[in-house]
């Protein structure tokens, strides 16, 4: 192969919580500029995979490389500073902190005031609704606004790759559409994305490739178009 080394290169990743083995030795790559989606039933190990990639879940791996660098033993904060971050499942905003404070903390890795202000301005342009809510406590935002805030907070660290864990969870259909439009938009600006999503149809629509996790193992992988056409996927997720 002559293609360049992938941005994220994982092989033999295992996540176990005591006796429970949630992820059992999976291989996965994400190339620069791609949207890759990770599909699977509830409890298949999708969140565990994303959390393990950023060091928030206990992990073992034969190979865990990001931008060609081994990150298997880096703590979360160093991985984030290195350019990979996660928008966690369930948004996980800080209810009593204001929107502005979320953006400030999200951008904590920026050294000077200049780059911080610049990134912040970018975010507020991307999410105008947050501009109107700057001094509001995050706990008082609507679900959709909280999801925007969670994404904006992650983007404040100017990542090279963004891991998104079920961004559409519990949101109204119009909001879900807006978020997916945003994800496509972010990719067109050069961001690489690894997306976990229950809404398989939507995910495959914007993704380049996908993996299907079953009981902690990758059972199927391929291009989004192939997966969309696959009978198994159709049966399992897309209804008759």
């Amino acid at each position: 192969m002559t293609s360049p080394a992938p941005l994220l290169d994982v092989s033999g990743l295992t996540v176990s919580y005591g006796a429970v083995e949630a992820v059992r030795g999976i291989d996965l790559t994400v190339a620069k500029g791609e949207i890759v989606t990770l599909l699977g039933a509830n409890g298949a190990g999708k969140s565990s995979t994303l959390n393990a990639l950023v060091g928030l879940a206990p992990r073992r791996a034969r190979r865990l490389a990001f931008s060609g660098q081994d990150i298997a033993h880096l703590p979360t904060e160093m991985i984030v500073r290195g350019g990979m971050t996660l928008v966690p499942e369930g948004r996980r905003i800080f209810p009593t902190l204001t929107v502005a404070e979320h953006l400030l903390l999200g951008g904590a890795k920026h050294a000077g005031r200049g780059p911080l202000a610049e990134t912040r301005a970018e975010m507020l342009a991307l999410f105008p609704i947050l501009n109107e809510r700057l001094d509001q406590k995050a706990g008082s935002l609507s679900g959709g606004e909280q999801q925007m805030l969670s994404i904006a907070r992650a983007l404040m660290s100017s990542p090279d790759i963004l891991l998104l864990d079920e961004p559409s969870l519990g949101l109204a259909p119009q909001i879900v559409d807006r978020i997916f439009a945003l994800v496509s938009d972010l990719r067109s600006r050069g961001l690489t994305i690894l997306l976990v999503e229950q809404n398989v149809a939507l995910a495959l629509e914007i993704a380049d490739r996908g993996y299907v996790l079953v009981n902690g193992r990758i059972e199927i992988s391929g291009s989004a178009a192939d997966l969309m056409a696959s009978a198994e996927i159709r049966d399992a997720y897309l209804g008759a």
């Binding site: 703590p75 904060e77 984030v80 971050t85 966690p88 999200g106 904590a108 660290s157």
Partner: peptide, 9 residues
């Protein structure tokens, strides 16, 4: 956990 995701030690 999420504070660590902000790159804060």
């Amino acid at each position: 956990a999420i504070v660590r995701l902000m790159g804060l030690r």
